[in-house]
Amino acid sequence: MQVTQRRSLSAVDERRESRRQSLLDAALELFATRGYLASPIEDLCRAAHVSTKSFYGIYESREQCYLDLMRRTTEHLLETMTAAVVAEGFDDVAAAERRLLTTFARLMGGDPRVATVLFGRGTATTFAVEAERRANRRRTADLIALIWSLSQVTQEQADGIATGVVGGLFDIVADWVAGSDELEVLDPAVLERRLIAFYQAVTAGIRIGKENLS
C-alpha cells in the first residue's frame, strides 16, 4: 500500500508541475503581449487550460505567478551566460567579456517576450518584484565582476562598477522593448549593437582609469 501511495503522490506532483509550467508559459505570452495589468488570472487559466481552482492550488496571487516566471526566466539566462563564459575560458578576458555580452544580447533579442516580461510592459511593479529584480542585478554583476577582477580592476572596484553597468544594460533592453508594441518587429541586431557600444565605452573608461592610477 505504501508503494501505491508513493506512486500516487508522485503522479499528483507531476500533474501539479505540469499545470505550473503551463501557467508560466501562458503568463510569458500574455504578460508580454497584453501587459501584466491587462492579464487577469482567469485569462491566464484559460490560456493554460488550467482551472482557477488549480491556479490557487499553486499560487496565492498573480504576483506570485509573475515572480515564479521571473525566477524561471532568470535562472535560464544566468545558467546560459555562465556556461558561455566558462566555455570561452578566462585566458583572454576581452573574449570572455564579449562572449558574456553577446550571449545576453542574443537571449534578449531572440525572444523579445522575455525582455518585455523582465524589463518592459509585461513587468509587475511591487515591492517583492523590485527586491527580486535587485537580487538578479547583483547576481549578474557578480559574473561581470569576476571577469573584471582577473585583470582590469580590483575586486572592490569591480563590485561597485559592475552593479552600475548591469543597470545600464538592463535600461538599454527596456528602451529597446519600449520602441514598439509589436514584438515581432523589434530588431535583435539593434539591441546587440547598443549593448556592445555601451559596454565598450564603459570598459574603455575602466582601462583609462587604471592606467592613470598605475
Rank of each mutant, 00 (worst) to 15 (best):
V153K: 03
G120S: 08
L169M: 14
I196P: 09
L143C: 08
A145T: 10
F170P: 01
L195N: 08
R133F: 14
T140R: 02
L186P: 04
L143Q: 04
A131V: 13
G122F: 04
R138E: 14
L118Y: 00
A128W: 14
V185D: 08
T154E: 10
F127C: 14
T123K: 03
T126W: 12
W148P: 05
A145F: 09
V177A: 03
G179I: 00
F119P: 02
E182V: 10
I196A: 12
G160S: 13
R139T: 12
A145M: 13
V173R: 04
E156P: 00
A128H: 15
P188L: 07
I144H: 02
F127V: 15
V166F: 07
G167Y: 09
R137S: 09
V165D: 01
S149C: 10
R194K: 12
F119E: 00
R194D: 10
L183T: 03
G168W: 06
I144R: 01
E184T: 15
G164Y: 07
G122I: 03
G168H: 05
R193W: 12
G122H: 04
V165L: 11
Q152E: 09
T163F: 15
A141M: 12
V190G: 09
A162S: 15
R137L: 13
L143D: 04
D175W: 03
E182H: 08
D159H: 12
A135I: 09
T123G: 06
F119Q: 02
A158Q: 04
A145S: 11
V129T: 10
G179Q: 03
L183E: 00
R133W: 12
A141T: 12
S151R: 09
A131N: 13
L169K: 03
A128R: 14
